[in-house]
Design a protein around this nucleic acid. Sequence first.
DNA 1: GTGACCACCTGGCCGC
DNA 2: TGCGGCCAGGTGGTCA
Length: 273
Amino acid sequence: MPELPEVETIKETLKLELVNHTIKGISIYCPNLIEYPSVECFQKQIIEETIQNLERRGKWLLFELDHYYLLSHLRMEGRYLFRTKKDSLEKHEHIVFLLEDGRELRYKDTRKFGRMHLIEKEKLYKQKPLLNLGFEPWDAHVNGKFLREKLKSKSIPIKTSLLDQSIITGIGNIYANEILFLSKINPLTPSNQVKILQLESIIKNTKKVLEKAIQEGGTTIRSYEASEGVHGKFQHNLYVHGKEGETCPNCKYTIRKISVGGRGTYYCPKCQK
DNA sequence: GTGACCACCTGGCCGC
DNA sequence: TGCGGCCAGGTGGTCA
């Protein structure tokens, strides 16, 4: 599933293909994917807009157009593919953007979990979904004191807080597991009981894990591809995620899988006490 | 303000 | 073999 490193990889891949190209038409086969505005407005407003740039904010992909930002969240299995008019529409291809050079940018999403917004440029950070988004992990505001302040009234597990996009944006389930393993913190620890040194360790390892994952092009687990045929390699660097029953690379204890906040959580009970 | 729960959605897997 | 049920996941909404 695309998290921050995967979205960063997708952004860079699409940027090479899309900047300075104009959207001439759009076909929407699954209206539920359009969150805002209405499907009719979305279709009307996006026509004749030229893609100026691609950006990323957390797990959101931002297409900068002339007058709007097209925001795309890939959720679990969303991906973008390039096709031509001659190519027949395949299963799960729900939205087709026709470009002025005849290519088609198709949004494919097996589970239809992804969402798109089209927002006027000046309102980008004044309304959902970016309004309440937290800081990027590399933001200067993100330090131990910041996290302690944010978590002081929270008794939910630290793993759940790491997934809260209004605190630090971009961390998903895979990387939260890895970050807590490297920080030697039990994922069930109440957020307000994590010590300041541990919070600083979390921040350090968040940057470390995400930077490494971006270098490797993200993590390819099941269905994720940056674009067609582009696979990440970070799955070879995972310590605990998806390794239930295997031995811990540090202490050789058996890695355990539990459910925290309804999410599959992998950890070493010996290293992460 | 906080936390728990649910809906969204489909393919894959497992047990019967 | 076929069927039903469960699971995976991120986010937003609702309710206590």
